[in-house]
Amino acid sequence: MKVLILCTGNSCRSQMAHGFLQSFDKDLIVRSAGTRAAGKLNEGAVRAMAEVGIDISHHTSDPVEKYLGEEWDYVITVCGGANGSCPMFTGKVKHRLHIGFDDPSHATGTPEFIESEFRRVRDEIKEKFYEFYQSL
């Protein structure tokens, strides 16, 4: 099974979803990409995932164009921007889903509050993507 997870910057939410989904089943082929890839991972996302034992520090922030020619069982958008601008994968995608999350990188306030937002979103991503995985 091949799953592509899309976000706008591919630095935070899609990377966390990628990490969780791959941790649920090592046999899944999971990739993540951005409609406007940032080119680097958000350090808050890397730290939040490390707290739950998942290392995403080796992931890369890739542009969606890298994957347009491939066939996918699922393409899942995790932010409204990517959902609205998701490229057409006509004939190459069996299922297209949107599972949206807040962007913790936009959180403002104390370092403790910002860290708590990364954890909150991380936990929501884990829950929703585990539900998705169980539905397979």
Results as ranks from 00 to 15, higher is better:
93 V>T: 13
90 T>E: 12
97 L>C: 06
108 T>I: 12
86 C>S: 11
86 C>T: 05
93 V>E: 00
80 G>S: 15
89 F>M: 07
106 H>C: 06
107 A>P: 02
100 G>V: 01
92 K>A: 05
109 G>F: 09
80 G>W: 05
93 V>W: 06
102 D>T: 04
94 K>C: 01
83 N>F: 09
87 P>D: 11
92 K>S: 09
93 V>H: 03
98 H>K: 09
88 M>A: 10
90 T>K: 09
94 K>F: 05
109 G>W: 08
87 P>S: 09
93 V>S: 00
81 G>A: 14
84 G>D: 13
89 F>Q: 01
84 G>R: 14
88 M>G: 08
82 A>P: 13
83 N>M: 12
82 A>L: 13
102 D>P: 01
109 G>A: 10
87 P>H: 10
85 S>K: 12
83 N>L: 07
105 S>E: 14
96 R>L: 05
98 H>F: 08
95 H>T: 11
82 A>K: 01
81 G>H: 15
101 F>H: 00
101 F>R: 00
94 K>L: 06
91 G>Q: 10
94 K>T: 08
108 T>M: 06
106 H>M: 09
85 S>G: 13
104 P>R: 03
100 G>K: 01
109 G>T: 08
104 P>V: 13
86 C>G: 05
98 H>R: 08
96 R>N: 02
109 G>M: 07
82 A>H: 13
80 G>M: 14
106 H>R: 12
80 G>I: 11
88 M>E: 12
93 V>Q: 01
97 L>S: 07
88 M>R: 09
106 H>T: 13
89 F>P: 01
97 L>K: 13
107 A>F: 04
102 D>E: 14
101 F>A: 01
99 I>S: 04
83 N>G: 04
80 G>E: 15
100 G>P: 02
106 H>E: 14
93 V>A: 01
85 S>Q: 14
104 P>H: 05
109 G>Q: 09
106 H>S: 11
108 T>C: 06
89 F>A: 03
109 G>P: 07
99 I>D: 02
103 D>M: 03
104 P>Q: 12
94 K>A: 08
98 H>S: 15
96 R>P: 00
81 G>M: 14
101 F>T: 00
89 F>Y: 03
105 S>K: 10
108 T>H: 10
103 D>S: 06
103 D>V: 02
103 D>Y: 00
105 S>F: 07
104 P>D: 03
101 F>W: 03
90 T>L: 10
99 I>A: 04
81 G>E: 15
